[in-house]
Design a binder for these strands. Structure first.
Lengths: 353, 353
DNA sequence: TTGAAAGCGCTAACAT
DNA sequence: ATGTTAGCGCTTTCAA
């Protein structure tokens, strides 16, 4: 028998723990300095085609994934944009995000989303958390923030775009619509169409400032026409469509003289419409209806609900454009203000005169 | 005239560029070493109440926001969980995210979302980008990925949970339902209810593997009963509700004998239902209808659509639980497989025998 | 075109 | 209970 080398099973054979690969590994595998590897991987500086090949080949075959944490620390450049929104359940915000992604996809920037559940303290936490990653910009819904949040945003030293709403004092840039104006314009359209006994249906959310502003604009414009909101009803939680039905039934039973219902969003408006149709209420003859947002669900309803487009997609896009332009230095100054014009969609639930 | 000190305007007065604060600033302001400041800010180790106070006070008054990039690099701990989903427009995914957030909110972990638009190459890019931040875990929709994506996920050395679907070979853990089974069960329920001339309506998306698997399960189970799908129709883009109407009209005109329509999602199903009701088609007598997902929109429809709940919220929660448990070491082994049972909701659009 | 050295801001590990 | 030292993995800067 030849004296084979026998490797005992239970020896302290060093099984190196699977460690993430580093530049050094690629450097060794390719026989090129770490620095040059780094240059190749970032397409920076002059590197000969030959070494370039070698490096890319080595990186690929090892399955190297760069460590952005180290890169960001070394370069103090972070390609993240913090996007802070109140909710994901309300389709409005995913739509805004879609607009943001669409634009950022053309840049090296990447959105990172934080959700606040409409709570100012939670917003503060989320913001703190996100800012601690030193993002290159912040897109945040609304103009109402705690003092601490405003202080953090100002101190962050990066572009901040407040979105959705323009009624208030922005910290830096702002992109949105005036919800007061949206409310006023809807009120005028309703009165002009000859409705006089108007009911309002909304969410039970004192912290939804945009819904509140629409309501304020609405009642204010009605007041100018000598009209008052006759009755109102609020809901929280549950299926918005079902709640729209229920609330509509409730308010119409309580105030049978109502001839118009203004809903704070299209979903409950759609529920109201379905209720009316089910109960043979003539829309818009006996009762007119209007919602808010311009969601594309409305296209498929038996009758097209009157609404006012809130331009979510465009808001997301524009906010992202502002951030991108500021970061790459195209746009110098801060404080841009973009007010989009909400456009009334008369649909078929607002009678025409 | 006294000789006042006159400060010339255009002197090279050093205006220190607004630099983000560091631990050192807090250390100097509080007269405590950086290390102790770090300890206080992370609630680590023993620190006397007195110094603790001093430090917190200093940090707060300066408005210090820690730099997680540096922290992560030093500790090689990153409290991020990458969540990769195909889309935000389909409410299903925001719902999953809601479940994920809900659970991660109770932990130090934070979700970071990436969207792939159902494109495998885009998924690969997004994954590469996210993994370069060295997240502590990955939650990713589906079981179908490019080889490169699978390789990256395996090499990442962190828990990976594939979600939504269990029909296939997971990389690590998996949480979802069997879409094949969902399709089969719906087929059986339909045949059992006495329908024989069945149409299928879906999205024109070869890359939506879950929809495909449902369809396969569906046709397979029908075949066992000696039934074949009579006609089918596909759409892409636009308002799903409106498309549901259109497709329903098209297919019923083309194949008037159809007595059941199976929709690949609730939204187009709802459109179909509204179409039928508008056109006085007796549902479920003349034509039965069923969708898929169990979205809560269905609660508000004139008639409750039959569907099968896909348990999105619970999938998100469970995936997050698995990640959290593995990270804090509660759960050792990998490869957990959680198959949720999709539950048939008969509603009012599937006739009862 | 390539490489070497010196940090980025923090934390682990070890003093004291 | 507090401080000191040495990196984490990269990029910047400077040198060759």
């Amino acid at each position: 028998m030849t004296d084979e080398k026998i490797v005992p099973m239970n020896e302290d054979i060093e099984i190196p723990p699977r460690r993430p690969l580093t530049l050094k590994d690629v450097s060794e595998a390719s026989g090129v300095s770490e620095m040059t590897v780094s240059r190749v991987l970032r397409n920076r500086g002059d590197v000969s085609e030959a070494t370039r090949e070698k490096v890319l080949q080595a990186a690929k075959s090892l399955g190297y994934v760069p460590n952005k944490i180290a890169g960001a620390l070394a370069s103090s450049r972070v390609n993240l944009v913090a996007v802070v929104i109140p909710s994901l359940s309300n389709m409005v915000f995913p739509e805004v995000l879609t607009g943001v992604s669409e634009v950022l996809d053309e840049t090296p920037l990447q959105p990172v989303v934080g959700v606040t559940n409409y709570l100012p303290e939670k917003e503060e936490e989320v913001l703190f958390e996100m800012l601690s990653w030193r993002p290159s910009g912040v897109i945040i819904a609304g103009l109402e923030h705690t003092d601490a949040s405003r202080a953090m945003l100002k101190a962050a030293g990066v572009p901040v775009v407040e979105i959705m709403d323009v009624d208030g004092e922005p910290i830096d840039a702002v992109v949105g619509i005036s919800h007061r104006r949206a409310g006023r314009e809807m009120a005028r359209a309703i009165v002009k169409a000859g409705y006089q006994n108007i009911g309002f249906l909304g969410t039970k959310m004192p912290l939804d400032h945009r819904a509140r502003k629409r309501f304020e604009g609405f009642t204010e414009a009605l007041a100018k026409e000598g009209v008052e909101v006759m009755d109102q009803e609020f809901y929280s939680g549950g299926s918005a469509l079902a709640k729209g039905r229920e609330m509509t039934e409730t308010i119409l039973n309580r105030s049978p003289d109502i001839d118009f219902l203004y809903y704070s969003n299209d979903m409950i408006g759609a529920g109201g419409l379905l209720y009316c149709l089910d109960n043979s209420i003539d829309v818009p003859g006996q009762v007119g209806l209007a919602g808010f947002n311009g969601v594309d669900l409305l296209e498929g309803l038996p009758r097209k609900l009157a609404t006012m487009d809130s331009g979510r997609l465009e808001i997301g896009r524009e906010a992202a454009r502002i951030i991108a332009a500021r970061i790459d230095g195209t746009e110098e100054t801060g404080g841009r203000r973009v007010e989009l014009t909400p456009k009334l969609e008369v649909g078929e639930t607002l009678r025409r005169r």
